[in-house]
Design a protein around this nucleic acid. Structure first.
Length: 476
RNA sequence: CGGGACGUGGCGCAGUCUGGUAGCGCACUCGGCUGGGGGCCGAGUGGUCGCCGGUUCGAAUCCGGCCGUCCCGACCA
């Protein structure tokens, strides 16, 4: 292996450095001048756009519509729901001055939109006939985080936030879980990332929610990442913002709300879950380029190979594949192979003089490195099949990794040992008290990532009291 | 916000201890030869050494302050 390849730090050697190297070298993002801000570069943004489209289609399919609400929120609104303001207060960015004048009331740059949206819902909702309200917003938010990393934790985040209103508690809970499923499907089917779903413990609950549900993914270094959340807000915000409607019995009552969000953090998860020592690995459904044609020419036949490569590119494009052809004359084929592997393109299509002679092309999979020779006429069809196989294989591999790194702990000693040495998810009973949760966190740095929907009875490893299954891990 | 490390062309670094006007590899530009796993030769471009102040005839180098980045902790999507 040559010097240039080694420049990407090995994932196993220093995962943190690997992550930052990869983001820089694959041109996914770049640091901004204000601490914690990042530009998402075109290639990184192309991935986010595909996630957006996938999610948006799923939202529309479940009856939601898009809207947009103000970025600026009066301080008085943020304060209306007591728990909410307490939760977000430490990280809100405030506007106190506009132009040359001080503002009378501080204005928050949205850390999330529940409060401002409630203002509008109070005006828009009057009757049970107005319900349910199923609105989503594509937006950004600002939370002044202390420790930042590109995609995983930034002070400005691109995301989607759904905000719905329902007549009954049952409907709201149903919606909360429906959207959790939508997120799970998106992770599994599109990002090829297996996620566990379940309920958050009270201490990890969204500020102001009745119940928070989460998708938790396991990263390559054995740490967990909260990948998306869905909240049942109950009537907490409706009460605080005086949202009411006249129900079918002529009674004025508070409705029930939900909110759910999925952010560019998912791009960080994608990198951490699928990336390897060669670079990024993007599942076909998400890849801005599914297949890249790399011509292999010699001085004397450059013209012919070039023409054939361009023709092949057109054929593949016509076959409905997202394709590019790398006609760069400065770099050797080997250089290009490495470059496109770094970028995570699912399949490389090599075309050289020998291939042209035989009427074939060489396909190389990014996920397995497997090489195959395919007849030119069958390329389009074969590639479509291959994309499906790669998509499936990537999910299967990630699921296998998660399976290998999910452990049952029989004692607290064993629990500590697993967290310290192997990391990964640890399944153990929890007695439901904040006290044991806190103690485990202090002593092992592991937190309860979620409480699964199916929970077994058992004895809490710390307190010895009766408990039920919880999933622990050290988290990002 | 605490503990530690570090800021020198786009990236990775040397030079800092012992002050004398900035260098290497990669990248980039031009020319030529090359081309099935990061090719070779030649010629070039690019840096107020993180910022502000101090000491000095002279500061990347010494002193003070600030800012930023990374790692390990406390808080979070």
């Amino acid at each position: 292996m040559t010097e240039a390849v080694e420049r990407l730090t090995k994932k196993s050697e220093d995962p943190s450095k690997w992550y930052l190297d990869l983001i820089r070298m694959a041109k996914l993002a770049d640091y901004g001048p204000v601490r914690g801000t990042f530009a998402i570069r075109p290639y990184g943004y192309a991935i986010w756009e595909r996630i957006q489209r996938d999610l948006d289609d799923r939202f529309k399919a479940t009856g939601h519509v898009n809207a947009y609400f103000p970025l600026f929120i009066p301080e008085s609104y943020l304060k209306k729901e007591a728990e909410h303001v307490e939760g977000f207060d430490p990280e809100v960015a405030w506007v106190t001055r506009a132009g040359r004048e001080d503002l009378e009331e501080r204005i928050a740059v949205r850390p999330t939109s529940e409060t401002i949206i409630c203002e509008f819902y109070r005006r828009w909702i009057d009757s049970y006939r107005d319900l349910p309200v199923l609105v989503n917003q594509w937006s950004n938010f600002v939370r002044w985080e202390k420790v930042t990393r590109p995609f995983l934790r930034t002070i400005e985040v691109l995301w989607q936030e759904g905000h719905t209103v329902h007549a009954t508690a049952e409907e709201a809970r149903e919606e909360t879980l429906r959207m959790l499923d939508v997120y799970q499907d998106c992770f599994h089917e599109t990002l090829a990332i297996p996620v566990l779903t379940g309920m958050k413990s009270p201490s990890e609950r969204f500020a102001g929610a009745v119940e928070t549900f989460t998708c938790e993914a396991l990263m390559g270094d054995g740490r967990a990442l909260q990948a998306a959340t869905s909240h049942d807000l109950g009537q907490n915000f409706a009460r605080a913002f005086d949202i009411t409607f006249l129900d079918e019995n002529q009674e004025r009552v508070h409705p029930y709300q939900t909110s759910w969000g999925f952010s560019t953090r998912s791009v960080g998860a994608l990198i951490l879950v699928h990336g390897d020592d060669r670079g990024l690995k993007i599942p076909p459904k998400l890849a801005p380029t599914e297949a890249v044609v790399v011509p292999i020419w010699r001085g004397k036949n450059k013209g012919e190979v070039r023409r054939e490569a361009e023709a092949l590119y057109s054929e593949l494009k016509d076959a409905g594949l997202r394709t590019e052809v790398d006609l760069d004359e400065e770099h050797s084929p080997g250089w290009k192979f490495n470059e496109h592997e770094l970028r995570g393109v699912p399949v490389r299509v090599e075309l050289g003089p020998k291939d042209i002679e035989k009427g074939q092309a060489v396909l190389v999979r990014r996920d397995t490195g497997e090489k195959e020779f395919v007849e030119r006429k069958q390329l389009g069809g074969r590639l479509h099949v291959l994309m499906g196989e790669i998509q499936e294989n990537m999910l299967r591999q990630a699921a296998a990794f998660r399976h290998e790194n999910t452990h049952q702990a029989g004692s607290y000693e064993e629990f500590k040992e697993i967290i310290a040495e192997k990391r990964g998810f640890v399944v153990a009973p929890w007695d439901g008290t904040e006290e044991t949760e806190q103690r485990i966190k202090e002593e092992t740095k592991a937190t309860i990532r979620l409480l699964p929907f199916e929970r077994q009875e058992g004895e809490d490893l710390v307190s010895g009291r009766p408990g039920k299954t919880a999933i622990f891990a050290r988290a990002y």
